[in-house]
Design a protein around this nucleic acid. Structure first.
Lengths: 194, 194
DNA sequence: ACTATTTCTTAACCTAGTTCAAGATACTTT
DNA sequence: AAAGTATCTTGAACTAGGTTAAGAAATAGT
């Protein structure tokens, strides 16, 4: 498995010379996961930042009634994992699992720290990554309050059309904060009205 | 108005020498706002990162039915504003207003860029700031899906006890994603059960 | 191809949270 | 202190979305 797609991704944000590329590539741990397999388990301390090369992962929270709540999906070019657990060294409340056979690159916590110390561009890369994620998250919060479920579903489909091929509807429902049954109703209404 | 509280805040995360402190202090624009006054208006391109020295601000989104939805509160030591608008140069969908007489420090977009280029520590400071905010935001999303309104209210009070002095209940309701009337009912139930 | 398991849908009934409208408490301003 | 404005509460009627349970359709395993 080669890591060049990741380097390409970084270079969209910051510049890297040959030596930097080499080093960065060297610290990632490539991993293949089959559909259904876990990359991280809740309850354990997260050790890796997870970058998706291909396939699709989901990160989710399981509540005390054993209901799963999808925090985020991640397809090629996305990062996922539990930032809180890895940075603070506390057990994670999220699990990360493959929704399809996937190739991921694991960046161990220590290696990330090294990268940040060694290459200021990497500090910038992550700053911008987090900055963009923050905008998206806040938008999701507000839309959760301001828009009805059907609107949220419609904009989800517009925003992430590629996810439909990987993600079962029940997880999309979970991501949107509704039940699969209600999503079914919404989908039917949308079909009937056109 | 002095800016030293801000420097103290940065120094909790990264180190600064005398020269750096001086320069950083020099690029901030201090501003006093009275209760009810706006710091940023939706529809305009955000020009400043907003740091709160004292008092309390709220940033909110107004939907097409003219309902306000509180995105976040900010008291002393917090940043607020619309990251999307300022970084992408697009009109903001959020407004920021003072809930009490407040002292804020405005960091113009250009000055932030300069700081980031000049001092790698500042890149790190913002990376960590965003990283922490991301954790909080994701938690808020998940709690919005996994917890009922009364639980969300209780954990809000535990997490931000200091906000109760500044923030009218109707805005707390908005932040939690419920109506003021329903928050009233929740509060009553909580009173009766003890 | 056959079976088992998971996912998706439907329908009847239920509830957390909303809407509307009115009254009660605060908080300002003069 | 009075009057005006904004906030908070209450209650009755309502609705978006949840629950339960069962069947249909798709996937996966053998």
């Amino acid at each position: 498995m080669n890591t060049s797609s990741f380097i390409t991704n970084i270079k969209k944000t910051v510049n890297l010379n040959e030596e930097e590329e080499k080093y960065i590539e060297s610290v990632f741990v490539p991993l293949r996961v089959k559909q259904g397999e876990f990359v991280e388990h809740s309850g354990e301390i997260t050790r890796y930042f997870i970058y998706v090369q291909s396939g699709c992962l989901m990160t989710y929270f399981t509540d005390r009634d054993a209901f799963d709540h999808v925090a985020q999906f991640a397809t090629a070019g996305w990062w996922t994992g539990d930032l809180h657990s890895i940075t603070k060294g506390v057990p994670s409340i999220y699990s990360t699992r493959a929704l399809a056979d996937s190739e991921v690159l694991l960046l161990p916590k220590n290696s990330q720290e090294e990268l940040l110390n060694k290459y200021p561009q990497m500090e910038r890369y992550f700053r911008i990554l987090y900055q963009n994620a923050l905008v998206t998250h806040l938008h999701r919060i507000i839309q959760g309050h301001a828009a009805a479920a059907d609107e949220r579903y419609i904009s989800f489909r517009e925003k992430y059309p590629s996810l439909e091929q990987y993600v079962p509807l029940k997880y999309i429902a979970s991501y949107l904060g509704i039940t699969p049954e209600f999503l079914s109703k919404i989908r039917r209404r949308l079909m009937e009205n056109r």
